[in-house]
Design a protein around this nucleic acid. Structure first.
Length: 587
RNA sequence: GCGCCAGUAGCUCAGCUGGAUAGAGCAACUGCCUUCUAAGCAGUAGGUCAUAGGUUCGACUCCUAUCUGGCGUACCA
């Protein structure tokens, strides 16, 4: 709606430019397409058309061109609605909003929770892999960024029409897994999550750390872990039994964490199930001459054709590696569910790995290798650098969440809103999660980010709770309106009453929402939703503060403003769904 | 060494694919609760957009070089 009118103005101005040029030079001209921009200040209008680009061809100052075109269009009897404003070299238009608002209202009313959705990925089957924990330790902040991104991008892709399948890959085999097993075997004394009262993933993590200590004392430790892996791949009964027990502990613990943080999957893959397929495919590739065998028996690929070095695919002892497993997993997935696209949400440090993986799959002759995409996200660092488990600087996911929830709870109690809220713990958890997700998604996914445990996640300012608070205030107001609704039965919605600057801005942001969703979908970028969400909330807050809505003197104005508030709330709710923030009716 | 990425206010981040006076939040200071939730609103202060060149009517944005930092280049994942 808004977009169409902008386009109409654009075409008209382009038309007039051509006509004007012909008039003064008596020849045809082809012009570069006119740029459509948004003026920096609302009082400058709603759309801006910069005319710099034509100065050379016209041999005329852009301001002069703008003025002339404005006059020419002014003389036309038939032109799109809106008022032209001259701002030096810019020809701006202040749009007539009543028609736009009406159209927008019926669209939002009709589409409700689907408002903003696009058909960008209609009929596309998109598989998205994220989280992918090791079964040797609990989740930390890095995983949380991964999980937030995975969930959010999934929701955004769905909103853009895709058929999305969320998959997890449990990294439950390899030397590192054997490390915690070995340490447990040596130092565990039969301890269990029940006997120690430690959450399973944390208990296993304890032995992973224990291994690191032992490794320093005993130089044969790593070799022992490697031997264990060989035994594991041979199916040694005792090793497998221990492995199953400890994996079970971790997975139970992880399931609990996922549940708490709103993370879920349509399907789980386990490397223990796919590595063999990977191995087979590598051996097949060896037969077909795609790979080669070194003297010691290890299998390699030469990556000279993509200007990289060589990469090992099977160890000399025959066991498989990360790459081998990922080859098998990808193939298994495409067989299970032939996707149009598979997105791997994995940290940027693994860019090389995926470049090579995609290349290998292509070499093996899988045509869908070109549909694989690595959504590479930046690291989460601490103020003094990287998180290091050995130095105990890892920010544990469970601890972080619990701390935030506790803070939220205190805040509710301090405000004496315990009884006004829909369950103290429930609300506190929702606030903690909203704060966390918004914090992690606000930043451009591709960029590294810094997390300061002391002060990073707050509940004031540009934060999740701020947004939830705006939602709750609108919700509260609408409830109050609902009680007296009958008094307004006969009042019709009059869009022309919404002509304050803030109201026009809110309308523009509502109208713009679908484009934001689409762009976020194109770029796999939830931060775009976040900033739009913050902008509209902030604008609403200012408007709400400065103007009476429910208490406005004129009944027609009440209806107009309530209607606008409803639209804003719908956009806020729909945005929440895309970035993992729960909508709270009261907080 | 080579490859990829980044450098914007004291701190954490935006900056719409080259346009108007570079914006938010936090922290600091100042106002505003007999009015729809003060987890709020408004204001003050804070910038040589790492540096130097180049392209252009116009550069935080594009190009080149330099400096700084991160990551990768494992028979770890």
């Amino acid at each position: 709606m808004l977009q169409e009118i902008k386009e109409q103005w654009k075409s008209l101005i382009e038309e007039q430019l051509v006509a004007y040029y012909k008039e003064i030079n008596n020849e045809e001209i082809t012009l570069a397409p006119l740029a459509i921009q948004v003026p920096p200040k609302p009082e400058l209008g709603d759309v801006a058309f910069p005319l710099f680009a034509y100065a050379k061809q016209f041999k005329m100052a852009p301001a002069k061109i703008a003025q002339t075109i404005k006059e020419r269009i002014g003389n036309l009897s038939d032109r799109p609605s809106g008022e032209m404003l001259l701002a030096g070299p810019y020809l701006n238009v202040r749009l007539d909003f009543s028609a736009i608002i009406k159209g927008l209202k019926s669209k939002v009313d009709l589409e409700k929770e689907h408002y903003g959705n696009s058909n960008l990925y209609n009929n596309k089957k998109v598989m998205i892999e994220f989280s992918c924990p090791n079964t040797n330790k609990p989740l930390h902040l890095g995983h949380m960024r991964n999980d937030s991104l995975g969930e959010s991008v999934s929701a955004i892709l769905k909103a853009n029409g895709a058929d999305v399948k969320k998959v997890n890959l449990i990294n439950n085999r390899g030397v590192h897994i054997c490390k915690s097993m070995l340490a447990y075997k040596k130092f565990g004394n039969g301890e269990t999550p029940e006997s120690s009262n430690i959450k399973g993933d944390h208990l296993v993590g304890k032995y992973y750390v224990r291994f690191a200590q032992w490794e320093k004392e005993d130089p044969t430790a790593v070799d022992q872990a490697k031997e264990m892996l060989v035994k594991w791949e041979e199916g040694d009964v005792e090793t497998i039994a221990l492995w199953e027990k400890m994996n079970g502990w971790t997975l139970d613990g992880l399931a609990e964490s996922y549940e708490k943080t709103g993370v879920s999957f349509d399907k789980y893959y386990y490397e223990s199930n796919t590595y063999k397929l990977g191995k087979d495919k590598v051996l097949k590739g060896l037969e077909d001459g795609v790979f080669y065998k070194a003297d010691d028996g290890s299998v390699w690929i030469d990556l000279d054709d993509i200007k990289l070095d060589k990469k090992v695919l099977l160890r000399k002892d025959g066991t498989s590696l990360y790459m081998t497993q990922d080859i098998g997993t990808a193939i298994a997935r495409h067989e299970d569910w032939p996707f149009d696209s598979l997105i791997y949400v994995v940290a940027s440090e693994q860019q090389y790995h995926f470049k090579v993986l995609f290349h290998i799959l292509d070499k093996l002759g899988y045509s869908w290798a070109k549909d694989l995409h690595h959504l590479s996200y930046g690291m989460v660092n601490l103020p003094n650098g990287k998180m290091k488990s050995r130095e105990g600087t890892v920010v544990d996911a469970d601890d972080l969440f619990d701390n935030l929830s506790e803070l939220a709870k205190k805040e509710i109690q301090e405000k004496e809103r315990e009884n006004l809220v829909d369950g103290l713990d429930k609300t506190a958890n929702a606030i903690a999660l909203g704060a966390l997700n918004y914090y992690l998604l606000q930043v451009d996914p591709t960029k590294d980010m810094t997390f300061d445990p002391e002060k990073s996640i707050s509940f004031n300012g540009n934060t999740g709770p701020y947004l939830q608070y705006m939602g709750a205030r609108i919700s509260s107001m609408l409830r109050k309106f609902d009680e007296v609704k009958d008094d307004y039965k006969d009042i019709e919605f009059d869009a022309s009453l919404l002509n304050l600057e803030e109201e026009r801005e809110l309308v523009k942001m509502i109208a713009n929402f679908p484009e934001v969703v689409k762009k976020a979908g194109e770029n796999f970028n939830p931060s775009l939703i976040c900033s739009h969400l913050y902008d509209i909330s902030k604008m609403f807050s200012k408007w709400y503060h400065d103007n009476k809505i429910l208490m406005a003197d004129d009944k027609s104005i009440v209806v107009a403003r309530i209607t606008l508030s409803e639209m804003v709330l719908q956009v806020i709710k729909n945005s929440f769904n895309l970035v993992g923030i729960s909508y709270l009716e009261s907080m």
